[in-house]
Amino acid sequence: MNSAALTAEQTARVVDIAMDLARVGDTGRLVEFLEHGLPADVTDPAGNTLVMLAAYHGHADTVRALLARGADPDRTNARGQSPLAGALFKGEDEVVTALLAAGADLDTGTPTARAAAGVFGRTHLLDGAPGGNR
């Protein structure tokens, strides 16, 4: 994003809008923001990325679009939570599959996705993932 053309307040507003688009799964509009220079791994004040918010809210298509544009599937938020652990917590199986297909690390974050899968009875989703059920 060409932040030189925007004030800090305007940049913050653009990020807020993008985060809202990720939360509601408005993939088309969110991709437009990325095409105009918004970094795929931009974060909100809590350290959440667009992938984190899309994953937590169950928007697998949005997660896939972000990953295809270079978003990091393992970037944790300020609380150390990963998108994969969040998707497991919320029971978002399609998002889990998308993140694993992108190479998300089962042992990133606190709790790890591996631990979250165990706690929430979702270890079957880890079958076939690198280092899956061990």
Rank of each mutant, 00 (worst) to 15 (best):
D127F: 08
E9P: 09
A78G: 15
N48M: 07
N2E: 14
A71M: 04
L50R: 13
M1P: 15
V42P: 01
R134Q: 11
P130A: 13
G47N: 09
F120D: 01
G131S: 10
A8K: 15
G118Y: 09
D72H: 06
D74A: 09
A68S: 12
N2C: 06
K90G: 07
G80F: 04
H36I: 04
A60H: 00
T110W: 10
R69Y: 03
A40V: 10
L126D: 03
L88Q: 11
D107I: 04
G58H: 04
L21M: 13
A40S: 14
L67G: 01
T49H: 10
A85D: 05
H124E: 13
V15A: 02
L50M: 09
L66C: 13
G47P: 05
P39N: 08
P111K: 06
L99G: 02
L34Y: 05
A22H: 07
L125E: 02
R29P: 01
H36Y: 13
Q10C: 02
G132N: 10
N133S: 14
A40L: 05
A87W: 03
G109C: 05
L106V: 04
G80L: 02
V31P: 00
E92S: 05
N133P: 12
E35S: 09
A8L: 13
I17P: 00
T97L: 08
A22R: 09
G25W: 07
L53A: 02
P111F: 08
A46Q: 15
G58N: 04
L125G: 01
G80T: 01
E9Q: 15
R23E: 14
